[in-house]
Design a protein around this nucleic acid. Structure first.
Lengths: 343, 343
DNA sequence: TTGAAAGCGCTACCAT
DNA sequence: ATGGTAGCGCTTTCAA
């Protein structure tokens, strides 16, 4: 494989044209299969030349000329959160299926970083931006101003202008709590939800309270803890809920799987068993839930479909729905809430 | 904020120059803080103009002109694997700290996809490529041919030409198995390692056998299972190792955390408890390990340092080390091997 | 069917 | 200190 070099040491379309004895335009036509037809013989000459000198098209140059990058950006709060990772995995699948590539921006739960990431991605001319928020509400005006389509994943943006895919978090929390109450007869209820600053936290807590109220019960304020969506916070919540030797809840709903893992781990260390002593249910579980000990009861989101829909929206921004697209969640009761022994 | 538009409906540097009454060159100088100085007054005029008309530099155009994209590519086998995700998280951190952005390619454990991803990323002119293999050996010649620096993360490429950061997997397996034998007096040993097709599998198994041999023990072939690095496979391995009611191992080392999770989950369903009935140790654990029930004993890799080093190599490809850079692993015994009760 | 040439938006050299 | 301008590699219109 002969390597020709231009100034920058790269093989360019120029080189191919020279080698094949044609014009640069023709090379473009064969590489892109259009927009003009090329005689079979010529085409073969070009293909051979490409092979011979090892030409690869420069994606940056074509992006500039074409005005499209075939790249999507995805800003996530923290890729090491399994729920986030599984969404990213699905999104990447969809993106790849469209012959595009995903620019992942991990904001490490930092709002400033997140803003920088959004700006950066936009500057890179992504064809669309997926967004999973750290902060309650985002500065997405920059994006909309730039004309780049955006879809908020998993949350709804209160501006009512940005497309979004999500489930009804309030209903999900309600359903989980209702299960705990109706199926397992739980009456000493607690909830570990997210930080007060996050919109979801209130929604989830609201749903849980709805369920309790409907059953003539309440979730006492002392048994309502706001905490980050981490395992550490889940463990810490256990200290609050089960700290003194006194009365403690017998059923806990957590805002996400990580909190539940931390909680269960802490209960284990305290010698309390799940679900015998305490029933645990969590929102937004991942495939992990099934393999935890005990298997974790959870509410799941249809992330594959959500990812697909999100990409669909980005591809036809004209079909923009300011109304959030709401998907159905699924209640998956397992061992940790008292359902099924060794299923 | 007035929006000027050119043909494509974007605000360009032209518009800024016109608005500020200067040349386009000057606009470049102020945006990039160089390479020529600009008078404070002029600079302010430009800045104002930028603000006024809402200008944002086009990263694609500047990448083309500059010949550098400030973008790194990272090809991973599956982002929903927590070990992979935590590495990606660290890599993203490092990349961001260099004011760059990460193009994540998730090959979904598919070799063809992986090849496509590598090609795609290279075509996009990434300034460097990080690579975590699905397949044992990769077609990285394309990359090296293109002159793009590459570093293989977590594995070593046998071509001996590509830089890599990793730990000594063989020694890691040896250390874990030795712990099981020496500290806990285990003698009925089993190993769940990766698929035969993967280089690591043999290394890990080799290390485990070294340890056994040194103690005058063996890991019987019936208790050596090759399986994918998934929870499902870990559970399936349990069926093999503990299937009939007969003799079973009392200590199992797994190739990764996912396998261990699947294994422990299956043991739990079978009514066997960890570590009382079976001690479990795994390689390459993540932060998750600590919160599992029981807390999982593991060998960890210093992923933050490895990520940093990988990026360092990409930034100075001249310092290329064909020799893999080997990091120290850390043995973290917890509950699952029999260490510490409720630590 | 093929080729020439005008951009795409920005950088940076060379003048002034 | 500022401005003109020649590229960067590719796409695509228009003419041949």
């Amino acid at each position: 494989m002969t390597q020709q070099t231009n100034r920058r040491g790269k093989v360019t379309r120029q080189d191919v044209a020279r080698e094949a004895g044609t014009s640069v335009a023709v090379v473009s036509y064969v590489v892109n299969d259009g927009p003009r037809p090329v005689a079979p013989a010529t085409k073969q000459r070009v293909l051979d030349a490409i092979e011979r000198i090892g030409y690869r098209p420069n994606g940056i140059a074509s992006a500039l000329a074409r005005g499209t990058t075939r790249t999507f950006g995805f800003v996530v709060p923290n890729i090491s959160n399994p729920f986030v990772a599984s969404i990213a995995h699905q999104v990447e699948r969809e993106v790849f299926d469209q012959d595009c590539v995903l620019l992942l921006g991990d904001s490490a739960d930092d709002a400033a970083r997140e803003a920088a990431l959004v700006r950066n991605l936009l500057d890179r001319q992504v064809d669309g931006l997926l967004y999973m928020a750290v902060t309650q509400d985002v500065q997405l005006d920059r994006a909309t101003a730039s004309g780049t389509p955006v879809v908020v994943v998993t949350h709804a943006n209160s501006d009512g202008l940005t497309a979004s895919v999500r489930i009804d978090e309030r209903a999900a929390a309600d359903a989980a709590m209702t299960h705990l109450i109706d199926v397992h007869g739980q009456r000493e209820l607690a909830m570990v939800t997210g930080p007060e600053s996050m919109m979801n936290s209130a929604l989830r807590l609201g749903g849980a309270r709805d369920a309790a109220t409907r059953a003539g019960l309440t979730i006492p304020d002392e048994w309502t803890v706001h905490a980050p969506y981490t395992r550490e916070a889940g463990s810490a919540a256990a200290a609050v809920l089960f700290g003194d030797g006194g009365a403690h809840p017998t059923a806990v709903l957590t805002g996400n799987q990580e909190q539940a893992i931390g909680l269960v781990s802490a209960l284990h260390r305290r010698g309390l068993s799940v679900p015998e002593d305490v029933a645990v249910f969590c929102l937004n579980g991942t495939d992990d839930s099934e393999f935890l000990v005990p298997a974790l009861s959870t509410v799941t989101q249809p992330i594959a479909e959500m990812a697909r829909e999100a990409l669909r929206i980005l591809s036809r921004p004209d079909h923009y729905a300011a109304e959030p697209i709401v998907f159905d969640f699924e209640l998956v009761p397992r061992e940790s809430c008292g359902c099924g022994g060794s299923a």
